[in-house]
Amino acid sequence: MARLKITQIRSEIGGTRNQRETLRTLGLRRINATTERDDRPEVRGMIATVSHLVRVEEVDA
């Protein structure tokens, strides 16, 4: 299964509550924080919610 490397590139300040909670659920707490998640529909949906705040790269498993 493919993995996604998700990096927060912009601040959550000024975002909606849903966007802030989505970043927390993804495991991102500050700018330049990075996490890896499985490429699943649920994760893709969360990324779509905060797409303007994060950078996503595919990583080989």
Rank of each mutant, 00 (worst) to 15 (best):
M1I: 07
M1Q: 14
M1F: 10
A2V: 15
R3F: 11
L4D: 03
L4M: 08
L4E: 04
I6K: 06
I6G: 02
I6T: 01
T7N: 09
T7E: 13
Q8L: 14
Q8K: 13
Q8D: 07
I9H: 06
R10I: 00
R10N: 10
E12K: 14
E12G: 15
G14L: 05
G14K: 05
G15C: 14
G15W: 08
G15F: 02
G15D: 06
T16F: 11
T16S: 15
N18S: 14
N18P: 10
Q19L: 00
Q19R: 11
R20D: 02
E21K: 15
E21Q: 15
T22N: 02
L23I: 00
L23V: 01
R24D: 04
R24H: 06
R24Q: 06
T25F: 07
T25Q: 08
G27D: 06
R30M: 07
R30F: 08
I31A: 02
N32G: 00
T34I: 13
T35G: 08
E36A: 08
E36G: 03
R37S: 07
R37T: 06
D38F: 12
D38C: 11
D38R: 14
D39E: 10
D39F: 02
D39L: 05
R40W: 12
P41V: 03
P41R: 05
E42T: 14
E42P: 08
V43A: 03
R44L: 09
R44Y: 02
R44C: 05
R44K: 13
R44S: 04
G45A: 15
G45T: 12
G45R: 15
I47H: 00
A48R: 08
A48P: 00
A48L: 00
A48S: 09
T49I: 08
S51K: 15
S51L: 07
L53A: 01
L53T: 00
V54H: 01
V54K: 01
V54G: 00
R55T: 05
E57M: 05
E57I: 04
E58M: 09
V59Q: 07
D60S: 10
D60F: 00
A61D: 15
A61K: 14
